[in-house]
Design a protein around this nucleic acid. Structure first.
Lengths: 347, 347
DNA sequence: TCCGGCGATGGCAACGTTTTCATCAGGCTA
DNA sequence: TAGCCTGATGAAAACGTTGCCATCGCCGGA
């Protein structure tokens, strides 16, 4: 380590702009300018300064910077649970988009806990984030207020109504779900079931409604017994499917509100000695990474997480730059589409 | 929003400690004390202060705080790729452990890119993190130096040698791998193959070596054709397995360096018209979340990511508190263990 | 020759905290 | 009663930046 010049200098203690100035024989103001507005300083001088910066391996202290400028250069991202296979892609997409705009990201998980959600918001506020993307549904009124009253641009996923500094990304669940029903219909399925998500989750309700509507549009019967509730986890899919299989007459195809549920369903179907898609076709929702590698690979509706991430970033950036310009959309739409794999077949 | 008292006050601009002091009719010093060392202020006064804090919904500015104290209250975590199913659990575990100690976490992904790795380290340094957990292998000498010379406690996973402020978590790959070989041996397998990870990945090499050693210890032959290379992704597993299946005489069991590889293998085996575990037994490594839900559920060696995360946190905390105490272990061990599911059967 | 402007630089206040060093009133001990 | 400790408070100096307001040559136009 001793032979790396850059680290050899002031071991342990950070170099300050002061030391750089001293070494380059200029004032700290000039150093600051060389870094932030290079056009204002003489090229000769600038070179000297950069040399000093390099020799001291100096970098500005973000805290001091933020303190004086009031800007943190950070965008917050709140998700439910990084462990849920739905989110990592979203996080990554958001991160990539955000760094491209020169910002950094602070990620926080709520663990589906409203209390922890409050903590997340507080944390974001404390760190002076310049904008927040809330990609979870444990949102509560008063937390929104906290964000709003602090004038922090915020973008929600699928929740709430847009307004000043509040954007919303609305996902067109119905489109993909309709494609799915149509796909099953085309394969000859007439008896189609649905296993929904938790009652409390708004987006789960939306999916269920969209399914029912699409069924009606296709002139298909809605058998109450074939509409059951899961929990968006594997276990819920297993349980609901078992109930359905116990019915004297069960559907030939079942759609799930969520891929995890679909995976549980497939497991239950196999355990019952039936096959997918031979006996029952299965359609999921989300198209998590894993869907491609289940056996059989899962036909599912793709939730475009990358697009959502990008739009979220865009929405925030737009709020950040053209502040107080009310004429922008502030509502963004993304589509969902069916991805056909091998878990569906003709009846 | 107007009826939430807390948000109604100073909309838009943050309250400062000054305003709190003014409202509570004390000096800012006393306010600071009320917050940080409650024992030093009269209960009466404290009550007044907290009332003011509440009314203004004041919270301290972390930047100002960090600036003066030199402490950021943040621990960094560097991982390769949040999208890789191996990592989310690690991140979550670390986060949970760290917040329990009153710290916060800053996560950064390298995307396997050394350049971006440098950026990550820089970012951590800029933010004045008090410690860093490096859970990736794209580490380079000079980056370590940067950390070391800044006296930032660091903990590595499986890499490098411990030293002052440098801890290391060493994973006992051999133990679990040996259990796996033993398990296959007990099931009657004698022809056992292995598909390794990328050449460049140290931990992949370690796994391969451990496998070979265990084979030797069991007096089993090492057929060069049965040891092939993958890339720790699904595609690599498919390719390597196909090569193996094309052999005139293929193994009755194959172990993978990684679950993704094992999943690819299973897919290739099925495509070839053979069954798992009927024709070939498969063992993975890592025990990613998904392993439980493959078809058949994958027998694999569990990489204890939660333990690693906890130990990493512990190592950092210990470095942080008993600074300059050289007598601590600074090397932590975690075990790996076989998890038997349904992808292995008697020959 | 003088003045306005401009390019390059420096001085200094501010940002919101924590922290060290006083200050001050009581109450206790001697 | 003098001295001292103790508990409660304040004043002011940092912390490392940025940005405003000078300052200072120097050049070109009147």
């Amino acid at each position: 380590m001793a032979n790396h010049p850059r680290s050899a200098d002031k071991a342990g203690s950070k170099a300050t702009i002061h030391e750089v100035a001293q070494r380059a024989k200029v004032s700290i103001t000039t150093v600051s300018r060389a870094i932030n507005s290079p056009s204002l300083v003489d090229p000769q001088t600038a070179r000297r300064i950069w040399k000093a910066i390099d020799e001291l391996s100096y970098y500005p202290d973000v805290h001091a910077r933020s303190l004086v400028s009031g800007k943190s250069n950070i965008l917050g991202l709140i998700v439910s649970d990084i462990t849920n296979p739905f989110f990592p892609e979203l996080v990554k997409g958001f991160e990539d988009a955000v760094v491209q705009h020169g910002y950094e990201v602070l990620v926080s998980s709520t663990n589906y806990d409203p209390e922890r959600m409050a903590l997340c918001v507080r944390r974001m506020l404390e760190r002076q984030v310049e904008g927040v993307a809330v990609m979870t549904s444990e949102m509560q009124e008063h937390l929104v207020d906290q964000l709003v009253s602090r004038r922090v641009p915020t973008v929600f996923l699928d929740v709430g109504t847009p307004g000043a500094g509040i954007s919303n990304i609305v996902v067109d669940y119905a489109h993909g779900i309709n494609e799915a029903v149509q796909h099953l219909f085309a394969l000859g399925h007439r008896k189609i079931g649905f296993i929904s998500g938790p009652e409390s989750l708004a987006s789960a309700q939306t999916r269920r409604t969209a399914f029912l509507e699409s069924m009606a549009n296709h002139g298909l019967p809605q058998h109450a017994q074939w509409i059951r509730q899961g929990d968006h986890k594997v276990a819920g899919g297993v349980a609901a499917m078992n109930e359905m299989l116990a019915l004297p007459d069960h559907p030939t195809a079942v759609m799930a509100s969520n891929d995890l549920t679909a995976i549980g369903m497939m497991s239950a179907i196999r355990k019952a000695g039936l096959s997918v898609p031979g006996d029952i076709s299965v359609v999921g929702f989300d198209d998590i990474w894993l869907a491609e590698f289940t056996e059989p690979p899962l036909t599912t509706v793709r939730f475009p997480r990358d697009q959502v991430a990008q739009q979220a970033c865009l929405a925030l950036m737009s709020d950040l730059t053209m502040r107080a310009d009310a004429s922008k959309p502030s509502e963004y739409r993304v589509e969902t589409h069916l991805v056909v794999r091998d878990s569906t077949a003709a009846v």
